[in-house]
Every structure is written in C-alpha cells, then in structure tokens.
Write a protein that binds this DNA or RNA. Structure first.
Lengths: 124, 124
DNA sequence: GGCACCTAGTTCCCATCGGGAACTATACTT
DNA sequence: AAGTATAGTTCCCGATGGGAACTAGGTGCC
C-alpha cells in the first residue's frame, strides 16, 4: 500500500468539499503560490531572490507561502550554513509538474489582459 | 483607441506588482473562481445550481465571487423576472477562454492528487 | 570592542476575506 | 394566513494578507 490506487482517496473530485483535491486546488489556485512556483522553474532560488522576483510580497507572506508549498511536497528547502546564512528553495518533481498548468494560467493572463474591461485597467 | 495595443497597459508582467495582470491573476488564481467558471462551462446556470455544484460554498461567498467575475467581464448576469425570481449566470467569450487554463489546473489536481504527501490525504 | 551590514526570517497590528447560521424580499400555492 | 421557492443579505467571528518594524547569527570595518 505504498501508493494507493485511485479509489482509496475518494472520488477525486475538486467539486466535492471533502475531497483532498479541494485543499490542493486551494493551495495551487493562489496568486503567490502560482508566482513562487514559476520563479523556481528556472532553477533553485534563495529567499531574497524569490522575494525580489515576486514584487510586492512581504517576507511574512513569502515565508508562509513557501512553508505551505514545502509541506505539500511541491518544493524543497535546503539550508547551507555558509558565511551569511544561505537557504535555497527548489522544485520537487511534483512541483515541477505543477508548474505546467500554472504557467499556462500566468501566460493566459498576460496574453489576454487587454480583453478585460478597460475601467479596471489603470493605464489602459 | 478602442483596443489598446500591447504597450499601452504596461509591461504585461504578472510578476510586476503594478501591472493589472496581477489583479487578474489574483481573481483567476482562486479556488472559488476556478470552480465557478468551470461550473458554467457546460452552459448557463442559476444561482442555486452553482451553489449546489460548488459543494461547501456559502451564499455570501458565492455572491461575492460571481459579482467579481461579472465586474471583470468573465460572466454575464441575467435576471428573468419570472414567477419565482430567476437569475442566470453565463460565460462571456472572455470567460469561456479563461476556462481553458483553469480546467487544466483542476484536471491536474485530480490526476496528481495521489502524488501528494499521504499525511495530508485524510483517507489516503 | 563597538557599530553597521547581510541574510532569512519573526512579530505586531490592523484591514479584508472566508465561513456558518440566520434572516429578508418577492411572489405563488394551498 | 401559512408555507414554499429563489436569490440573495446580514451578523458574527476566526483566518488570511499586508505594511512596518524588529530579531538572530555571523562578517567586516574602524
């Protein structure tokens, strides 16, 4: 029973409140998660680098986001006790795979942003 | 100037805090938005139908979610002043297109749910 | 020694969001 | 007059997100 078959964990329906899929969707369908995973797509990054890439995120929220992704097995956190402390975040295989749909969502937004009502686009 | 070219609205970068892309990502990268748009993919649905499909959502949050999607031009809200009041929600062309990446995200979660750490999967 | 600096956070406070339960409004049915 | 149905709204409260300031371990500078 190392890897339960499809039936073991319920109906696998994101629309079912009790299905664990719901929690996973909640984790991934999140602005900061989508951006953080994307930032790690090109390779491992340090806390400060991710923080700089995700413009506008506060250190508190970034810590929380990364911890959640780590708990759910999407990223690894490696501490290098070097001269100035060095912590590196990297995608797990699962996290790498999750990047695909998230990248498509990010790309879709960038491509279609002009189609949104102009009132909502400040410098439109 | 009916439809501004790519430059008019900034750099089109979801990673830029000031880019309107950020707001759109925040809207779409959301559990309830992703589920609600998916529920409308098969055709127009009424408030009660959507509520029943999105198991666990409260009427307050559903109202808020639908209003936000409407404001951003992803869905239409049509009132039929029939016998018992009848309100129908339907996808706009923009909303229809947004369903593609969202469906991929939902599907990815359902397909890969078993790969997540088992501690987090209640009935795993 | 004392002070500023660097990295990676943590802590505090507050505004907004999300969730449950109950209530409202309108109109028809019995 | 009471009950049913639809589409919400309102209230309360705990969780989440955001800004600003502070902490901790260690280095280099004077």
């Amino acid at each position: 029973m190392t890897h339960a078959p499809t039936e073991a964990c319920g109906p696998r329906d994101v629309y079912a409140a009790a299905c664990p899929c719901r929690d996973m969707l909640d984790l991934l369908a999140n602005k900061w998660s989508a951006l953080a995973l994307g930032a790690l797509e090109e390779g491992p990054r340090r806390f400060g680098e991710i923080r700089a890439r995700l413009q506008g995120i506060s250190p508190k929220v970034l810590t929380h986001t990364l911890r959640r992704l780590e708990e759910h097995g999407l990223i690894d956190r490696t501490i290098y006790p070097a001269v100035p402390l060095h912590v590196e975040y990297s995608l797990t295989p699962l996290g790498h795979d999750a990047c695909e749909p998230l990248a498509q969502l990010r790309d879709w937004v960038e491509v279609n942003i002009d189609r949104f009502p102009k009132v909502l686009l400040p410098a439109g």
